[in-house]
Design a binder for these strands. Structure first.
Lengths: 134, 134
DNA sequence: CTAGGAGCTCGAGTCGGCTCTAGATCAACT
DNA sequence: AGTTGATCTAGAGCCGACTCGAGCTCCTAG
């Protein structure tokens, strides 16, 4: 074995491993940390290198979902801060998530309307090309 | 009447009126024209001011749909160029629209996945808050 | 002991899509 | 003639979200 973890080792990951697992670049991971959207400021091993836990990775995966569905980074930071603050902030976190749910629904509706229009245009071109002389 | 159009007047619109109708800013309208995504380079009245036809506005509305569903400006320009080129380019236009349709479908699927996850989290918080002591 | 490769920080650069400014022109009203 | 308000052009600026580069440190293998 090239990585003989001791029995009690919490199995942490390097930034490169996390990049591979999440699909984010190492640059993006450091950027996200600077932006304060990681659960904690990430532990460092002797030498200053980041060690990510599985929990960190799960949190990142949630962040990726929020980002990709259009939540801006400042709002993810706000959510992160609430989570860090711990007990008592659950109502605020719920409100934030509900607001985001609504935004996603709005986006879905907008996209669906666009899709209908694009499909209509596609159908028009198909009909036209079908009915061509030769 | 404050706008006594002559009988044969084609009823053109100023840039401000088009902005009001489309929701785009006058800046954005000029920007779009520079980017070459308007059907024609827009007629000008004596004095250099733009006069938009209803056809121009319809084209803009299509552009707005394409943009808001994620088509980048260079691709809208490509589509516009094909349309300007006229007969014979219909297959290319159809292909472009179909590709966009697929992109929209992908976005819808992604968003739906995100929505499911956000809803799951919302449910978790709701359950937690429901079950609170007081 | 040295060469590579992964990591580090800090700061600058990029990209897409507008947005805004400055300074001039023009149309219409008073 | 003067004032107001819409438009014009060319070009600079901005914002969000990364991306990249320089220069340095560290660890491990040969």
């Amino acid at each position: 074995m090239s990585t003989p973890d001791g029995p009690a080792a919490p199995a942490t990951l390097s930034i490169g491993q996390v990049a591979a697992r999440t699909g984010l670049s190492v640059h993006a991971l450091r950027f996200y940390e600077r932006e304060g959207i990681l659960a904690d400021p990430v532990r460092r091993e002797g030498g200053g290198r980041r060690r990510y836990t599985e929990g960190d990775v799960e949190w990142l995966n949630l962040c990726i979902v929020l980002r990709s569905s259009g939540m801006p980074i400042p709002e993810i930071r706000r959510y992160t801060e609430l989570a860090r603050a711990g007990a008592g902030t659950e109502p605020a976190r719920l409100a934030l998530l509900r607001a985001h749910e609504q935004r996603v629904l709005d986006q879905l509706a907008d996209l669906q309307r666009s899709l209908d229009i694009v499909r209509y245009k596609v159908a028009v071109y198909e009909d036209y090309l079908d009915g061509l002389p030769d």
